[in-house]
Every structure is written in C-alpha cells, then in structure tokens.
C-alpha cells in the first residue's frame, strides 16, 4: 500500500501549497509587529532611530542571493549540477553575509546611537522585528546547508526539483519581507 501523498497530486504540489499558506502565516506575524509599531508610534514619548547604513549592505546581499538562488534552480532543472552547486554555495554565503551585516547593524545601533532594550521606541522594535526576520533567514540558511550537503554527497537517483523549488520560494519570501521591513523603517519609522 502506497501512502506517499504526492500520488494524488493535483495542479500544485501539496508541499508547495503548504509553503504558501505558511508564508501567509508569517506575513501575519510581521503584520502584527508592524501594526504594533504604528500604534505605538502615535503615542506620547515615542523615540525614533536613524537606521544604520550597514543595512543597505544587507539589502544588497539578500537581493543578490535571490538572484543566485533563482539561477541555481534553473541549473538544477537543466541538470547542470556543477553550476547548481556553485550557485547554491554563493547563495549560502550571501545569506550568512546578510546575517553578519544584521549583527553589525545591531551593534552600531547599540554602540553609536546608544539604543538599548530600555523603552519601547523604534529602536526596540527594530531589534525585535529585524531579529525575528534574521531568524527566518537563519532557518533558510540551515535549509540551504542541508541542500548543499545533499548536492555534494547525496546519491539520490531521483531527480525531483520540488525541494529546490521550495527553498527558492522561501528565500524569495524572506528577501521580499526584508525589503518591506526596510522600507517600513525608512518611511514610517
């Protein structure tokens, strides 16, 4: 008896669909956070921050990584494994770079602008919202790491693009989410 769920699949692979619903869910979490920000920013005693420049570096890194992962997916589909491995590795490095930049940004905010966790202004929101986003990127980095291991050492004979497609979609999502958050802090913040 075969209970593999994909057997019955319709137009869209169930796992992909699941990912899209999960993305909706993550969007709600960040929407909750940014709404809280808006509510608070209209109250007395609100403290602003200057968004550290280094976050532009993060932006470049993550946008570039979105490109490389898309290319990686294309290579995979063309069964060009060595460019696939290379592009995946670059994406991974860019992802790690992004997290490092975020860390440096936090550090600058803390050291130069002396924004600590005391209070409830834009700075505290920034730590939490960007931190939460970075955790999501970290999740992606771990997934990429696993994929990369498989690309190098795996002996799978089955050639399915689904896992690569899943991680690509997720990666584009954290990229888009970052752009939203960056714009949010620049304009609303």
């Amino acid at each position: 008896m075969d209970i593999v769920s994909t057997q019955q699949r319709k137009k869209i692979h169930p796992h992909k669909f699941t990912l899209w619903v999960a993305i909706a869910s993550m969007i709600m979490m960040f929407a909750g956070m940014t709404s809280a920000y808006v509510v608070k920013s209209n109250q007395a005693g609100w403290q602003e921050v200057v968004v550290p420049k280094i976050f532009w570096g993060s932006t470049v890194a993550i946008v570039a990584s979105s490109l490389t992962i898309q290319m990686a997916l294309r290579s995979f589909k063309q069964r060009a494994m060595s460019p696939y491995r290379l592009l995946l590795a670059i994406t991974l490095i860019l992802g790690i770079l992004f997290i490092v930049f975020q860390w440096m940004g936090f550090f600058q905010l803390w050291e130069q602008q002396k924004v600590t966790l005391r209070g409830s202004g834009a700075g505290q929101f920034l730590y939490i919202i960007f931190g939460l986003h970075a955790l999501h990127v970290l999740g992606g980095v771990i997934a990429l790491l696993v994929m990369l291991m498989k690309a190098f050492f795996g002996k799978t004979k089955q050639y399915t693009a689904v896992p690569v497609e899943l991680i690509t979609t997720y990666w584009h999502f954290v990229d888009a989410l970052w752009i939203y958050l960056m714009l949010f802090f620049l304009w609303v913040g």
Binding site: S25, A36, T116, R118, G119, S120, Q124
Partner: peptide, 24 residues
Amino acid sequence: VLSFPVLLSGLILLFFDRNLGTSF
C-alpha cells in the same frame, strides 16, 4: 493560520518586557 501568528507577536513583545527590560 492567520490569527495565531499575531498572538505570537504579542507574546514575543511580552517576553521582552518581562525579561529583557523593554516597556512595550
């Protein structure tokens, strides 16, 4: 799926208030 994540946001802020000194 659409409402529980917002509770999670609220609880994260609550956790920071309790343990890390913020005052949301």
